[in-house]
Nucleic acid binder design. Structure first.
Lengths: 141, 141
DNA sequence: TCGATATTGTTTGTACGCAAATGGATTTTG
DNA sequence: CAAAATCCATTTGCGTACAAACAATATCGA
């Protein structure tokens, strides 16, 4: 291995490594602010509140989780009493999901906390940098 | 819930959600280019090559993995023949890790692929945007 | 020196996250 | 219409990721 090749690749400056660590930090901040549910459960629950009613797989698609993952997440949210099941009269394969009353209460409570978490996550950046960062991040998807 | 509160928080524009999806995309690109090992294993292996020799927990710290996580990663890399164990004469608690000859070969092979993955991940951004993105991302850690 | 404290590696339990396979229901298409 | 293709939910297997607890070893402070 040449010296140039060595300097050429330093783990600590790689996108993947940086994104993994940024994610770690965000999740740590999340659990500092919110006890009851995880970031993933939060995403699923909020999306369900946005959509009011969907099937399990559709909720998974809306939150970028595959069928196996969303199943576990929904199971846990249901166990905690945040999701209610109903049969779809038009499609016997589907399980229609709805947020429970408790879920709506949680939704209200969590919105301000979610803003705090966003703020804390982006705190190392100036207002202008925050906007740029979010714009570029969106482009990456 | 007021209408303003509703519009106030849309999941798809939140940092956490965006970072999770950007990470998903990066990992998908990674496995498109590299079959043998995962992004996490890659990080551990490369850091070990950078350090030449360390203990398990120290390697974990250097790659931002806790003790339980790095244990599994090291176990899998050892099973694949990339990591060699030695006893630390100065500290009986420690296991000194070293990359095997095969690991060094892999290291060489993977550097160009790693560059391709970085390039593909950042492809949606212009050169200038890529620099800005990496700078801001670093600040977030 | 010796007792408190810290560190190393390990295990257990819980929670994502994806690939691949399955069985049942629905839709498409020839 | 019937076969093929698709979609739904589920399961299994593997790989991160972290919290909490543990025994063994090192180190530090009184």
């Amino acid at each position: 291995m040449t010296n140039s090749a060595k300097k050429d690749y330093v783990l600590d400056t790689q996108v993947g490594f940086l994104m993994r660590r940024a994610n770690q930090r965000h999740q740590a901040l999340f659990s500092d602010h919110i006890d009851d549910i995880t970031p993933t459960q939060f995403a699923a629950l909020f999306k369900l509140c946005e959509l009011r009613e969907t099937s399990q797989n559709a909720l998974g698609r809306a939150t970028a989780m595959d069928a196996a993952t969303i199943k576990g997440v929904v199971d846990r949210l249901r166990r905690k009493g945040y999701i209610h099941n109903a049969a779809d009269p038009n499609d016997q394969r589907r399980i229609l999901l709805r947020p429970t009353a408790t879920a709506w209460e949680l939704y209200e409570t969590l919105i301000p906390k979610a803003h705090q978490i966003t703020k804390a996550t982006l705190a190392p950046l100036s207002k202008g940098e925050q906007t740029i960062f979010l714009t570029l991040l969106s482009k990456l998807i």
